[in-house]
Amino acid sequence: MLFSLDHVGFETGGRPILSDVSFTVAEGEYVTFSGPSGSGKSTLLRLIATLLTPTTGTILYHDKPQNDYAKVDYRRQVSYCFQQPSLFGDSVRDNLAFPFTLRDQPFDPEKATAALKQVDLSASMLDKPIKELSGGEKQRVALIRNLLFTPDVILLDEVTTGLDTATKDIVHQLIEDKNLHQGVSVLAVTHDESEIAVAHRLITITAGRMEAEHE
């Protein structure tokens, strides 16, 4: 199994956010999570991403506890994309160079521009100041920052919320392509019906508990 969650719970300041969540995800699966705001969906993805640690239960990745992996290696394989990403540095180049820096590799502008094209952004975008980017452009740059070095798993936290239909389609197409043709497993928090429709499974979370699971 890619992931096995066993009675996972999380609480902060004595307040339970997630309780008794158990499910498995197979390699190559596309799983969506839905539910009301504040039901714990983002927390669940952050637990899987190791950005938070469960207060109860265990999460296994490839049948081994998350703690068996070095955090930096795990997070490069299991890549978490934020709902409202923050681009850092001054330009798009600074953001796309960061994954190369992480891996001690020289920046490859061709690889970066090819990735920009995948999300319908031109090569000239590379040197554009981030202050001049629109919300949709920022979200796409953030997404390819996660995908420049193809991870095993991508965790998407409502990444298309607030985007226009055309940009949503571009992002969905890229995610589908990664899932179908490169075997990247996808776990996505979404309310988008079209995204839920292409996924293999939908898990509904309400008030911190798994409510239903649909194939």
Binding site: A49, F82, F88, P99, L102
Partner: peptide, 11 residues
């Protein structure tokens, strides 16, 4: 948020 993003990328 920027620190969180970098951590999530594997920094």
């Amino acid at each position: 948020q920027a620190v969180l993003e970098r951590l999530a990328l594997g920094a």
